[in-house]
């Protein structure tokens, strides 16, 4: 199908982009890689009046270290994230999950920032950024601000970003040395995750010292599994991990769709959390 008509600008700086967004008001949208937005527009499920194409703004791609914090440009493509040596070392979970996003052609266009700003709870990266306890840096007419990931995802396809704010970078405290695993459960390779579990584990003397669990598609936003995380601390063997994983669905409100019911999603969250944490901890 055919997207509805819109105006188009291609700013060369972040400032120009922010000005364009401010001028466009509620009906302006950022066009990053377009891999979520353009299909929605083709199905006429989104009708932006203005697209602000941020694809040519220099400095929004790639990564760097600031102390112990990995900084990834919001316009870095999934393909770029996957092949980034700093990401692989300091945010291995992000690289692992990014490898499961869509398919190679989509990963060439789709961007980390675009995926986060789209805030689809069924997408893989939002839960990963939650588990990594990342921060999102936005620039708007009122300047630059940093939003913790836990405050960023506010509802289904909703974020803390104002319409005139542009996501410019993602800051991730290094998890170099942590074990990680992204467990994605899907009916076919192209489908969205029915449930996904992002696990990060710090081990100490063979036991789990600290575990973080991010959940994909278990509610209207990506979620953490605090009850399971708490129960996982100190787990020293597979049985203990599986027991703790039984808490993974606490406080979640998964949806029903053609692939799964809420009860089944809750069940999967428990099973997959066990598997993800065991894999992350190297205890499988």
């Amino acid at each position: 199908m055919i997207p509805p008509a819109f105006d188009y600008v291609r700013p060369h700086t972040v400032e120009e982009a922010v000005r364009a967004l401010a001028d466009g008001g509620e009906d302006a949208k950022v066009l990053a890689g377009g891999q979520s937005l353009l299909p929605l527009m083709r199905l006429r499920m989104a009708f932006p009046q203005l697209l602000v194409d941020t694809g040519r703004i220099p400095g929004l791609r790639g990564s760097r270290m600031e102390g112990d914090t990995l900084v990834v440009g919001a316009m870095t493509t999934h393909h770029g994230v996957l092949h980034d040596a700093l990401v692989r070392r300091h945010a291995g979970l992000l690289a692992a999950a990014t490898a499961t996003v869509a398919d190679p052609a989509v990963r060439h266009r789709g961007t980390l920032g675009g995926s986060l700003a789209h805030a689809d709870p069924a997408a893989d990266l939002p839960a990963v950024i939650l588990a990594l306890e990342g921060e999102l840096v936005a620039v708007g007419p009122r300047g630059r601000r940093t939003i913790p990931a836990r405050e960023f995802f506010t509802d289904y396809l909703e974020t803390a970003l104002a319409p005139d704010e542009l996501l410019v970078e993602v800051r991730l405290p290094s998890t170099d040395g942590w074990g990680f695993h992204y467990e994605k459960f899907q009916r076919v390779a192209q489908a969205y995750a029915i449930v996904g579990v992002a696990a990060l584990v710090r081990r100490d003397n063979g036991s789990i010292a600290e575990a973080r669990v991010g959940l994909t598609n278990m509610g209207s936003t990506p979620l953490r599994a605090p009850a399971a995380e708490e129960a996982l601390a100190g787990a020293g063997d597979a049985a203990a991990v599986k027991r703790a994983a039984g808490e993974a669905a606490e406080g979640t409100r998964p949806s029903r769709d053609t692939s799964a019911s809420p009860e089944y999603r809750a069940h999967l969250a428990r099973v997959l959390t066990g598997r993800a944490v065991l894999a992350a901890a190297g205890m499988g």
């Binding site: 188009y8 066009l31 377009g34 891999q35 353009l38 299909p39 083709r42 393909h79 190679p104 052609a105 989509v106 060439h108 266009r109």
Partner: peptide
Amino acid sequence: VSVKSCSVL
């Protein structure tokens, strides 16, 4: 790089 030309303007 490969892209899906239906999802690129």
